[in-house]
Design a protein around this nucleic acid. Structure first.
Lengths: 112, 112
DNA sequence: GAGGCATATCGTTAATCGACGATAAGAAAT
DNA sequence: ATTTCTTATCGTCGATTAACGATATGCCTC
């Protein structure tokens, strides 16, 4: 997105209003993190992972009204956001919240 | 979404695992609120509205590399989420953050 | 009432999401 | 090595998003 000429608005008064907001990579970051939990199923998964002290795996599927493949996709999204980590534990995979990322998300939202 | 038979998983042990998570309307609510800011442009808008003590309007367009109609759509989404309110101010429209909603969002995220 | 701005809405398009079933891949155990 | 169980990926489909330009709507001013 934002593939357009950027309209860099020097306007007139020499104030150099490059883009008004300070480039803000944090905006992108916040958007990415919030997007990860911007779906009821993913909120549920996060809550589930938090309620169980640490990791779970196929249990998640049992606790959701969704097909295994769908849950897997949601987990992938959560992993890509960094909010969730998956570690191999024998034949199954053990998911857990990345506390550091969660804290980051909380901070970013709190600082709004 | 969630148009399927709900798979209510009584499992076996009489523990009545209806759906594991307590119906949680708050999950939906959180998902809805986070979805509203799950886009860089919308994060920007929220930040902009917060930086200016209160309302702004077409200024938003000037500060974003997006077409007016696109910004308008993002504003619509933000309004629908309740995070932003728009009040008519003569010929133009004055947008401002709904502090109450923002607080709610912060609370929901913080309580994760 | 006509003309001007400021916003909103409409209609379109390409891209992405969310869901599924079916199939592939990986590790443990037989 | 084969089976079994668990998870990931593929391919599909309908719905939704994000973006645009063009057009409609609303309110002031003249």
């Amino acid at each position: 997105m934002d593939k357009r000429p950027s309209k860099s608005k020097t306007k007139c008064c020499g104030e150099e209003v490059t883009l008004s907001l300070p480039h803000d990579a944090s905006a992108e970051h916040l958007a990415k993190l919030t997007w990860a939990i911007a779906h009821p199923a993913r909120v549920r998964i996060v809550q589930l992972l938090l309620s169980r002290t640490s990791c779970v795996c196929g249990e998640i599927v049992d606790h959701m009204p969704l097909a295994q493949s769908t849950v897997s996709q949601h987990l992938k999204i959560l992993k890509e956001s960094g909010l969730v980590q998956g570690e191999i534990d024998g034949p199954r995979i053990c998911y857990c919240i990345n506390k550091k990322m969660l804290k980051q998300l909380k901070r970013l939202v709190a600082d709004l």
